[in-house]
Design a protein around this nucleic acid. Structure first.
Ligand SMILES: [Zn+2]
Ligand SMILES: [Zn+2]
Ligand SMILES: [Zn+2]
Ligand SMILES: [Zn+2]
Lengths: 141, 141
DNA sequence: TTTTTTAATGAGACATTGTATCATTTCGTT
DNA sequence: AACGAAATGATACAATGTCTCATTAAAAAA
């Protein structure tokens, strides 16, 4: 019985973490959604797929994936629950409208050079990044 | 009786918001601390200065300052309360160690050009940004 | 200065989100 | 199959954030 393993699942195992049902389900939910999800949304979706999976395990998976730079929590507007966003290829970028909270995604960040520079200068090993611009979108400005 | 107004307080008023005791106290706490603060830390500090100020007003101030790109909530590790960080000059940058959660600040981002480009391309008006790199710090790598 | 208007406040009950504990299960290995 | 470690799920709990509404105070107007 050979299961299909997504590259991220593969990576989980290679890093020494067990491939459990809870983790794979949360990962699956995040991957198939793609965009920004709140913890509550993830909990709901996971529950639809397998209601046996416990609340705590979902949060534990979100923690783990964050540590692995698979996802990253961020805020759209303040003081609400964070949204978790996938970091495919290790990075993600968006503009958040501070008036209507619309999120505009964009692709190119040209940060590879800065990343390399920082790694050398500070002797760190970087695995991902999140770049957020704030301001007014076309409708609000 | 002419009060000293910090540039940010000035800006608050210019934008049409009232300069209330609650807002000025929260702003003062954030400015004098400088670094990353959780909502709980802000609540505590505000309480020390003026215990009359209510919990809700502190959260309301944090919301407002976020909308104005004076501060920005961000996550050090996942699933904990966010930390609010000042965006002096409209931006802030750091590296977060995904193992020990240490935060390393750095200055240069070279994002002015990208900012201008995005403003033109997408017809938005940008007021600030936050750039976060994730990875292992020198001690952890 | 006094009045007026209206945004903002504070109290505190409430709702939501995240965490801790621990007995039990599951994964990966031997 | 048997083992040990890692992870789980249930659930009670703690922490964080929100809502309502009567009252207050800031800024503008008179
Ligand atoms: Zn995004
Ligand atoms: Zn990037
Ligand atoms: Zn570290
Ligand atoms: Zn910058």
């Amino acid at each position: 019985m050979s299961e299909e393993l997504s590259p991220r699942a593969q990576r989980l195992r290679d890093t020494g973490y067990k491939l459990t049902n809870a983790r794979l389900t949360v990962l699956n939910v995040l991957e198939s959604h793609g965009g920004h999800m709140t913890s509550t949304q993830v909990l709901d979706e996971v529950d639809k797929i397998d209601s046996e999976i416990g609340r705590a395990s979902v949060f534990r998976a979100l923690d783990l994936f964050t540590r692995l730079s698979i996802i990253r929590p961020t805020y759209i507007d303040s003081s609400t629950t964070p949204t978790y966003v996938m970091l495919p290829g290790g990075h993600h970028h968006h503009i958040i409208c501070t008036n209507c909270n619309r999120v505009i995604e964009f692709e190119d960040c040209h940060l590879g050079q800065l990343e390399t520079e920082l790694e050398r200068q500070l002797n760190v090993r970087l695995t991902g990044h999140l770049l957020e611009f704030y301001g007014l979108c076309d409708r609000c400005s």
